[in-house]
């Protein structure tokens, strides 16, 4: 496979135009994870987003990233990000997998304290006051809900509180059918409640899933991009150009990603 641009051209309008205080939801399923997409979001946020074609010209001085990951360790993110040229000095990774943040002895309040602390230290220093932007990525918050005794409301409160302190938020969640289709157990009910609320708050929902028609060698999965319910009140800010689309994508063994339309 020839080397791919870090950010697939078809996706660049979706990755680089997050407005202030917005929430983007990435959902994944068992066979189609969204980690590659998270890395590309981070990459797009750190690069200079002013260029229209999504080409990467220089670092965006005023943006930093706080990445909280409950399911993946820091090494995984750094390995994947290095290939994209992500400057990890500007990414503050909270490795909640190895530290077990929020699980066992530590509570949701500890999670909030820890993340807020990271946001404060990560906040970039800029010449212009109010220009600094922090992208908060919460990867696997739904795991915290499933594995601990905290309630959906508490988790939603946490997200709400954290969103107030950052420029834009990226949230990932599993959205497999067994978890959301016909919720019966408390685990499934709270998961569905969380994801439904997030869909309503989100500006954009990007869902990665496996091909419906079976496994193919040259397609890793389908990426469906929908407007979330949170996009409505942003319409007057020129958000209308984001189109609801569905793409196919292929992730190579080297981590390179190709995004294309059906039939292409």
């Amino acid at each position: 496979m020839p080397s791919q641009p870090p950010i697939p051209p078809l996706l660049s309008p979706y990755l680089s135009t997050a407005p202030s205080a917005s929430l983007t939801l990435l959902t994944s399923t068992l066979g189609a994870t969204s980690n590659w997409l998270i890395l590309r979001f981070i990459c797009a946020a750190l690069k200079n987003t002013s260029s229209e074609d999504g080409s990467t010209k220089g670092d965006n001085e005023a943006t930093t990233v706080v990445l909280v990951s409950w399911l993946r360790d820091a090494t995984f993110w750094k390995d994947g990000g290095r290939k994209l040229g992500i400057n990890f000095q500007k990414v503050h990774i909270i490795d909640a997998l190895t530290t077990g943040l929020g699980i066992g002895a530590s509570s949701l309040a500890d999670v909030e304290t820890e993340i807020l602390k990271a946001i404060t230290t990560a906040k970039p220093t800029t010449r212009v006051e109010g220009e600094e932007r922090v992208l908060l990525v919460l990867d696997g918050l739904d795991f915290l809900l499933a594995a601990t005794s905290c309630s959906t409301l508490e988790t939603l409160d946490l997200v709400g509180e954290l969103r107030e302190h950052v420029y834009t938020t990226l949230l990932t969640s599993a959205a497999d059918l067994p978890l959301t289709q016909s919720p019966t157990t408390p685990l499934e009910i709270s998961h569905t409640a969380l994801i439904m609320t997030m869909v309503h708050q989100a500006r954009l929902v990007m869902s990665a899933k496996s091909l419906d028609t079976g496994v193919a060698r040259d397609v890793s999965g389908v990426l469906r991009i929908c407007k979330g319910a949170g996009a409505g009140d942003k319409a007057q800010e020129g958000e209308g150009e984001l189109e609801e689309r569905e793409f196919l994508y292929f992730v190579g063994a080297d981590g390179g990603v190709r995004v294309f339309e059906r039939g292409a």
Binding site: L30, G31, N35, S210, A253
Partner: peptide, 8 residues
């Protein structure tokens, strides 16, 4: 799969 590739 962790990188994003499809299973199988």
């Amino acid at each position: 799969t962790e990188k994003g590739g499809g299973g199988g």
